[in-house]
Design a protein around this nucleic acid. Sequence first.
RNA 1: GCCCGGGUGGUGGAAUGGUAGACACUAGGGACUUAAAAUCCCUUGCCUGUAAAGGCGUGCGGGUUCGAGUCCCGCCCCGGGCACCA
Length: 854
Amino acid sequence: MATKCIEYNFREIEPHWQTFWEENHSFRAEPKLSGEKYYVLDMFPYPSGAGLHIGHPEGYTATDIIARYKRARGFNVLHPIGWDAFGLPAEQHAVKTGTHPAANTANNIANFKRQIKALGFSYDWEREINTTDPTYFRWTQWIFLQLFQRGLAYVDERPVWWCPELRTVLANEEVVDGKSEVGGFAVERRNLRQWVLRITAYADRLLADLKDVDWPESTKRMQEAWIGRSEGAEILFALEPKEVGPLKIFTTRPDTLFGCTYMVLAPEHPLVDTLTQPERKADVEAYRKLAAAKSDLERTDLAKGKSGVFSGSFAVNPVNGIRVPIWIADYVVMGYGTGAIMAVPAHDERDFEFAQQFSLPIIQVIEGGEAKLPHVGDGPLMNSPGYDGLPWPEAKCKITADLASRGVAKATVNFKLRDWLFSRQRYWGEPFPIVWVSEADYAKVKAAPGNSLPNTPVTFRANGVTQCAVPLPAARLPLELPSVQSYLPGGNGESPLANETDWLEIWYNVETGAAVPASATRPTGATWVRGRRETNTMPQWAGSCWYYLRFLDPRKPNAIASPEALRYWGTPDLYVGGAEHAVLHLLYARFWHKVLFDLGVVPTPEPFTKLFHQGIILGEDGEKMSKSRGNVVSPDTIIESHGTDTLRLYLMFLGPLEAMKPWSPRGIEGVHRFLQKVWREIIAPDGTISARITAAAAESPELTKSLHETIKKVGEDIENLRLNTAVSQMMIFVNAVQKSPGLTRESALVFLQLLAPFAPHMAEELWSRLGGADSVMLARWPVFDATRLASSEVKLVFQVNGKHRGDQMVAVGTSQDVALELAKANPRIACYLEGKEIKRVIYVAGKILNLVVG
RNA sequence: GCCCGGGUGGUGGAAUGGUAGACACUAGGGACUUAAAAUCCCUUGCCUGUAAAGGCGUGCGGGUUCGAGUCCCGCCCCGGGCACCA
């Protein structure tokens, strides 16, 4: 039932239809799991205190258009939304105010929900999820247990990025230019005990399977670069004090071995102490201290000049037995390869620079480079006895094979990808379902029936005591967060959970997973052991790694989702979100999905087969929107002033969805005018249906043709996410309506169907007023009539030597001969042909006749 | 430095190798109005010209083609990503 308003009163119309949809459950995905499915997913938001930003509705509008369009095409559409609600801002707010982060999060969610509902998005709210809900994170913890059991989670004390301001560690991916990605605070290296996920075990598959996904090329490239696969060889160099054993290095250029004139160890390399000769000790120690004090940022900043120090020791090149000096330099990093390299200054820019600085010898072993070194390019070998003249790819294989036969080399593959630092020292995250016990007690767990321990125990040694990680039984999940006195992490590398003694220190039953506070008396029975819970929590990425699966069956109590739902809905057919997640969320989620695939939980190896990044909307000034610049546009303001239909339409009309584009307050007026025009064409000034619209209205043939063109164009454009030109086409149609003597009711209804995905409230309102059945959304998407698109005449363009010299309407199917005669007879063309010979005629039927004259 | 995108009127942007500038915005002119708003009509890439028309035009320089914004080569500029990864 439509509203009664006379003018286009979006303030009345929009809430009216939003209520209608809610009451009718209009967007509920069919739970019967029948028919052809379409799953379209947005990257779910973090509900920040600032509320929705104009960038959110851009992508959300695009997916909403797709969802509404696919429903009209008869698909069973799944279009869900939820909240990625663990995270730093809520926790920082909690630290400041002392209130539980859940309270603040709930407020923010309520606000986000209000804003999103006001935009009229067709989400299935019955599937709303929240990553902080224990019924949700129970499964986040469950997936962690699967990783744990498969040996994909381990604990390690390693140099990690520590942010003193945030009092937590951060993953490599979360550190940008030596600052925390969240907040922009300085970070430093610290050795801390951390949970790490073995994402590197999946490096090859994460790389290889990129070929199977329909993603923006740039995003694939970024993941490729991040994974950073390189083929090469590990080569053993004998060391001078033979007892030390050989030095293992990694190189991608075994073909340049004869050009190796020195070796370099990273300052953190474990052999540095052993290899440093007594007389070099002072220098090396000083250098190591200096390198350790430098942040990685400084280390790269100082890339202009190389630094290093001689260890006093020598290694022997296995290929020719030549002694080469071993240096310590921070241009070699410990985290990649073996942390040691053979330096070939003639063919590597960095080695070249270093060799020049420290006057080390440079030997060219690859021909070419026009006498200019370093020559990093291709070429046959030289100065390499036994291999001279060989092309380098062959030389690589041959030298590696020859050394391998002597047991001093091995062809290997290295990745830049590091294992994923998975723990945070914070309160507001999923607790790890892990209890630490002594080695002796671990044996009891192992003996317990039905345990789910990894093949190799996860252990950690502190203060001379080895602790072993024991997973909670899945039936004990979720492990909820205890309430705490303070949300502030200690700053010593432990989370606020470390202060909650009764939660932390427990008697643990190795068979049932039951726990009682250690302060209580030990329950009787041999299965009770002393345990301490893991105090770290998971990073925010955990919850977003698998949320697209929970939407399939969000209330399922005993599984991530039912196997039927997993099979029917599969993975999103379209995933839309910002490009800023190219190597974070999108890589982590792929990793987890592959693990779930290996477990047989999901039927496909990739989570997001088709991905699209919406562009950023800049402020009016062309700068990125930010509070400090004061150029932020809130959707609330626009909804109040122009309505959400205008906002949605404008966001789509602004330009290509993927492009970065500036907001313009003037542009929005134009789109609003368009909607006003639509209203006026259908509704008379007194609020009744316009007299021009009747079942048998005098509709011009041009208008009918334009309608069918519009059906075609809008449909194709939606399929291809070219939403800006779809809007243009609708404008063209409405301009044609204005010029036509009338518009049939049928045509009007069809047009409203096309408009409905973009401006659903107005479409519903006018559809209803025109007496359309039910809701415009329940009508099947119109089909264009190809015969209506055909016209009897087309404009033929005449060109002379490729230049446009005139045109003429001609009958469709005009032959080249006829067209040529028409051209010759055309006075505008004739003058160009006078006294010239037509050497060639190019005729594109119905389009162009090009005469080449000379 | 390397890897991706881009560069089209005053502005946002359209253009399967086939009429460059669709659709909008802005600006100017006109109609309606006591007036304003709203609406409607006209003009709106640059240059020459009263006009008809012509010339020039898609960052720059070449090339392929009957025909290039589109394809190829070499530059310049802007945006994003990576960056001592051996």
